[in-house]
């Protein structure tokens, strides 16, 4: 069986359009993961066990279970309890929740790398906890972990095809739909692979730039 260039040519615009959905889901998921992950990281450092324990358990649990099942859970189970959100949103929430458990670990490493003296200096000035976090600790903890967060952005991007299982028309879903009409899988799936490869390589290059920048700054 030959790879048909004309068919590939027809597909390409359709798939590039679908890649916008993929990118959108990635960015949405990442935004959620960044915010939620920080919240989880802060909760896990709370002096109150009632906050710390559940946050830790949530991270352990979500991290150790498949994203695929979490997607199904959000898509099929939540509506039974009156939570009705659009399909794409289900996907974004699943991605965001799942990756929040990874970003939480990244934030934690960043926070732990801030020298103790910085905290003590903040307390010596009798700043309230909120101000110490906001103005002293986080500004030092976050920049060094940007590359690690970037890696998870790329990882999440590569997991967006899972959203096809609940009918999101991202890259893979669109390709499979096209394939089911023409019974040709070769071209659509190859193109999807190539598009992912291209985006990943570009993202890796950008990330390396960012790393160099950060290294220069410090």
């Amino acid at each position: 069986m030959m790879f048909q260039l004309d068919y590939a040519g027809e597909l390409l615009p359709i798939l590039l359009e679908a890649s916008l959905v993929t990118l959108g889901a990635t960015l949405g998921g990442m935004a959620l993961a960044l915010v939620l992950g920080l919240a989880l990281a802060l909760l896990r450092r709370s002096p109150h066990a009632v906050l710390r324990r559940p946050a830790s358990m949530f991270v352990e649990f979500v991290r150790s279970t498949p994203l695929l099942i979490q997607i199904f859970f959000i898509y099929y189970v939540l509506p039974l309890y009156g939570v009705r959100i659009p399909t794409v949103a289900c996907g974004i929430v699943a991605l965001g929740l799942h990756y929040a458990t990874y970003t939480a670990e990244v934030y934690r490493a960043g926070i732990e790398a801030v020298p103790r003296g910085q905290w003590e200096a903040g307390r010596a000035l009798s700043l309230p906890a909120y101000r110490i976090w906001r103005h002293i600790v986080l500004p030092q903890a976050l920049p060094p972990v940007v590359p690690a967060l970037g890696n998870y952005l790329i990882a999440m991007f590569k997991e967006t095809p899972l959203l096809a299982v609940i009918g999101v028309h991202e890259l893979l879903g669109t390709a499979l739909q096209e394939a089911s009409q023409t019974y040709r899988y070769y071209e659509p799936l190859t193109l999807v692979g190539l598009i992912f490869l291209a985006f990943s390589l570009i993202a890796a290059l950008i990330l390396r730039r960012v790393e160099v920048r950060l290294a220069d700054r410090s």
Binding site: E159, A164, Y185, L189, G193, S200
Partner: peptide, 23 residues
Amino acid sequence: VELFRGTSLLVQLFFMFYVLPLI
């Protein structure tokens, strides 16, 4: 390494599942 890290696992799986028999 770059090929398998750069593309998505699910895409690889479908590629192997649907395309390999065709060739």
